[in-house]
Computed example of a mutant assay.
Amino acid sequence: MTQPDPTSLEALRRAIDAVDDEVLELLNHRAALAADVGRLKAQAAPEAPFHAPRRERDVLARLGAANPGPFPGAAVRTVFQEIMSACLSLEKPLRVAFLGPEGSFSHLAARHQFGGSSHALPQGTIEAVFGAVDRGRADYGVVPVENATEGAVDSTLDAFLDSPSRICAEILLPVDQALLLRPDLDLAAVRRVYSHPQALGQCRRWLEVHLSQADRVEAPSTSEAARLAREDAEGAAVASELAAELFGLKVAEARIQDLAANATRFLVLGPRSAEPTGCDRTTLLAMAPDGPGALLRLLEPLARRGLNLSRIQSRPTRRRLWEYAFFLDVEGHAEDPSLAEALDDLRAACASLKVLGSYPRTDA
């Protein structure tokens, strides 16, 4: 390819146009190949899942490692996730349920994982996200499980007690909270601040300093908070800047969270766990019989094999008074020999044990 004159703006722009035309031609060629793959998979195994998450992970990892620059490495995943999402939609769009409405951080996490060509299914509650996956109305669900500032999302943990869905991936999403107002409203006139309890907690100090006169009003999600603020002449919302665009609000202040490096961990729900990658995490739900040393008996099989327990959280089962379930995150895959042996010992030590899923770690 002839190199353009680097001192001529017009020549450079013509060269960029030519490259864009070539990229578009290649994208259409890729889409045609993907359609052929879908056709062959449907002929060979009509009942097999049409989505291959491991294949996507391998492609993204290979391209990220092979990128020589100057195209930004961080953008490689975003671009190719959208390309794969668009190509998959030619076969069948993925139905992805999340805590809505659109514009919530769960929506952002779902788009990060599955791309913009997936079919968004916003749900009013976290329990409804589980229900959509459990009943087959969604291929996947995305739910928040913990925040770096506010800790565990209890409603997500509680929903696992009765759901057959499995965890097949996790997403670590940076979370920047913004204060959103109607275009005609000033900060001093705000009397109510709407948001999800987790978001209000993440911005507690900022709100106390700048909006001490306003009541805090809990909403099912940050995007629903934006909708409520739009309808309230004295209302504001703590939500994403995307929610401001969707609901016609102005960003009065950006990045108001108390912890600058704020992040939320999301779980992806699906019909089955992910295949082992060599760098995985497994989430367990254990019910230990009441009595002295119950928690020690729960942890000992893991410690004896040198398995790292990265998180433990207890929740009441709501079935009997003072009965608790323990959620444990363990590094490794349930099919790894050492963890598989530990699970056998745990089953003997627990009243019940459920493997909620094994999936690739995002912090590796």
Rank of each mutant, 00 (worst) to 15 (best):
C87R: 02
D184S: 06
A109Y: 04
R227Q: 15
D232Y: 11
S195H: 13
S117N: 11
A138C: 14
D134T: 08
F327E: 03
L94V: 07
F247W: 11
A74F: 13
S352M: 08
N147H: 15
S358N: 00
L172Y: 03
A66K: 01
A66Y: 02
E170W: 00
L309M: 15
P4M: 01
G38K: 07
R137W: 12
R305S: 11
I16F: 06
D17M: 14
W206T: 07
R320F: 10
L200A: 09
A75L: 02
L24G: 10
F327D: 00
P4C: 01
R14K: 09
P174S: 06
F327M: 03
R281T: 14
L228I: 02
A229G: 02
L40I: 06
R62L: 10
R135C: 12
T282K: 07
R135V: 03
F327I: 07
S165R: 09
C168P: 06
E331C: 02
A159D: 08
S223C: 04
V175T: 12
S338M: 10
V96Q: 01
V37L: 15
S338I: 09
M84I: 14
M84L: 15
R57L: 07
D158P: 00
S118D: 04
R361H: 02
R230H: 12
A226Q: 01
L63E: 05
N147V: 02
A225W: 09
Q257F: 10
H119V: 02
Y140N: 05
P360K: 05
P6C: 02
R297L: 08
L285F: 02
G201P: 09
P49Q: 03
K250R: 13
Q202M: 14
P197L: 06
E82H: 15
G100I: 05
E82C: 09
A18N: 00
L161D: 08
S314F: 00
S8H: 09
S221H: 09
R13T: 10
T222E: 13
W322M: 03
G278Q: 08
L295T: 01
L161I: 14
P276Y: 06
P101Q: 12
F160K: 02
L63M: 05
A334Y: 12
A236M: 04
Q43F: 10
L242T: 06
S358P: 05
A243K: 10
I256E: 02
I256V: 12
P164H: 00
E245Y: 14
I312Q: 12
A236E: 04
R166N: 06
L249D: 09
L94A: 08
D336E: 14
L307N: 10
G64F: 06
E245N: 13
A178N: 09
D186L: 03
A42E: 11
R111G: 06
A288F: 01
L179V: 05
L12P: 00
A148Y: 06
T125R: 15
A42H: 14
I171P: 01
G357V: 03
N67H: 08
I16R: 15
A48N: 05
L121T: 05
